[in-house]
């Protein structure tokens, strides 16, 4: 009986420990390492599917998203009917992150509206776009390789 009670106590402790570890893992998955955007940019441009996409400046980001994050990298093509883009931003705080997130959501839904009825391929790409936030980074990708770019990005910022 004593042994059984002891075993149960150990089991209980182990499960509680498991829960704590799980929570710690979840919370750290929400955070990210400190990697400067320039390094991210260098690594991301090595990914496939980016060769015909060009670096955009702050004015371009402003005209597409309406805001300019403190740090960002933005790549898209020159062709007008091409919806592919890769946008990575680093927010300086929770407020900036909220602003970036809603600007991005508005941009994607605006794009979907613009192309619905005219460009089913573009709409499909936009609906399959990948957007996520991790730590103080925001990531948005539209394109056939969006998922691969996301995986590479996650590896970079841990």
């Amino acid at each position: 009986m004593q042994k059984k009670k002891q075993k149960l106590n150990i089991a209980e402790g182990a499960v509680l420990l498991g829960i704590v570890i799980f929570i710690i893992c979840i919370m750290s998955a929400n955070s990210s390492a400190d990697v400067p955007i320039s390094v991210i940019e260098q690594k991301m441009t090595e990914q496939e599917g980016l060769s015909d996409m060009f670096r955009q400046d702050a004015a371009s980001v402003k005209s597409v998203y309406g805001i300019v994050p403190s740090e960002f990298m933005y790549y898209k093509t020159d062709a007008v009917m091409d919806v592919r883009e890769l946008f990575i931003a680093r927010a300086s705080g929770a407020d900036e992150m909220d602003a970036i997130e809603s600007a991005a959501a508005e941009h994607i839904s605006g794009q979907i509206d613009a192309f619905t009825g005219y460009g089913p391929d573009q709409v499909a790409l936009l609906e399959h776009s990948v957007s996520m936030k991790k730590g103080d980074y925001f990531f948005l990708a539209v394109g056939d390789h969006a998922e691969q770019w996301q995986e590479a990005f996650i590896k970079l910022i841990g």
């Binding site: 009670k5 149960l8 089991a11 209980e12 499960v15 509680l16 498991g18 829960i19 799980f22």
Partner: peptide, 24 residues
């Protein structure tokens, strides 16, 4: 796909807690 782990841990915990009542 991630929180399923939490639910399983919760079940384990409550299961063990039940067994403890029986043993005490």
């Amino acid at each position: 796909p991630v929180y399923v782990v939490l639910m399983l841990l919760n079940i384990l915990f409550n299961y063990v807690a039940g067994l403890q009542f029986a043993a005490t």
